[in-house]
Design a protein around this nucleic acid. Structure first.
Ligand SMILES: [Zn+2]
Ligand SMILES: [Zn+2]
Ligand SMILES: [Zn+2]
Ligand SMILES: [Zn+2]
Lengths: 149, 149
DNA sequence: CGCTAGATGAGACTGAATCGCAACTAGACG
DNA sequence: CGTCTAGTTGCGATTCAGTCTCATCTAGCG
């Protein structure tokens, strides 16, 4: 059961060392259901045989962000969180405001809107962030059953 | 020249006190070209006859955010900034990545995209944030002339 | 003018994130 | 296998945005 963690193999492909610390961070991340904070990763690593230093957690997360394996999200609360995601494809995240689960979505027709904005403002838009928040199907069901009780 | 600062009159309408500190913050904000940080406001207030305490700057900004006169933006750099904006209308901001200037844009057809996302993910989306970054017309012109030189 | 709820200032405090540097190690090479 | 070295890490000190507490102050209303 040498299940190769996708995060680890991507690290390898990028010519980065596969250190103990990075393995621990990678594992901590892949076991997160939705978004997570640096602190979550730190806490998860402490539950393992070898704890990772705080600074290293941040360094690893930065690295993973550079590689596009993880993305930063700013929650409406103002907290900084991360989401694991597919590299190499521009996309956005829909985050459940109850449980934190997140799924990726593509552009789905945003392009024409961007063009409209460019022509109406005169800006040359070169990047954008779309963050969507709401209830995931599960939490929606839970909320509905609670309401009917 | 009793030019009533729009921020101040909105504060009055909301039944909030028009204190010296709030005037100073309001002035500091209206003289900002684009986005600004809490620290910017603090610095600006220090240049005036009466400096405003750090805590008060944050309290005032929070208040203005509640009133919808100012909005928080998370810059790609990760910094937290604010943008002055029109209250009472859902809109988004296009921010110049060179000079920080920002303009507001409406939905411009985002609604159908949200619906598409809802049906494809099963999420019930109740809020979203769209932040656009690029070069404003002026900075674009500057960049172009520099390039041709 | 005097009262009081609401607002402020000052500075201690918190906790996330960064830094500097000596010690460590992954992986290449022979 | 050993050796070597650039890339990593741990640790502790540090920074820095943002929050909190509480005594003092004041805007706005009689
Ligand atoms: Zn959920
Ligand atoms: Zn997009
Ligand atoms: Zn500009
Ligand atoms: Zn919108």
């Amino acid at each position: 059961m040498q299940q190769p963690n996708p995060v680890l193999s991507a690290l390898g492909d990028a010519g980065k060392r596969l250190t103990i610390a990075r393995r621990a961070v990678a594992e901590a991340i892949t076991e997160q259901a939705g978004h997570f904070t640096a602190e979550d990763v730190l806490a998860a690593s402490r539950l393992r045989r070898r704890a990772v230093a705080r600074a290293t957690v941040f360094r690893s997360l930065d690295l993973l962000v550079d590689l596009g394996l993880v993305e930063r999200v700013d929650l409406p609360s103002g907290d900084h969180a991360y989401v694991a995601c597919e590299p190499d494809a521009h996309h956005h995240h829909v985050v459940c405001s109850a449980c934190g689960r997140s799924v990726e979505v593509g552009e789905l027709g945003l392009r024409p809107i961007l063009e409209r904005i460019e022509s109406s403002t005169g800006f040359a838009i070169d990047s954008h962030r779309l963050e969507l928040f709401g209830l995931c199907p599960e939490c929606r069901a839970t909320a509905a059953s609670k309401r009917s009780a």
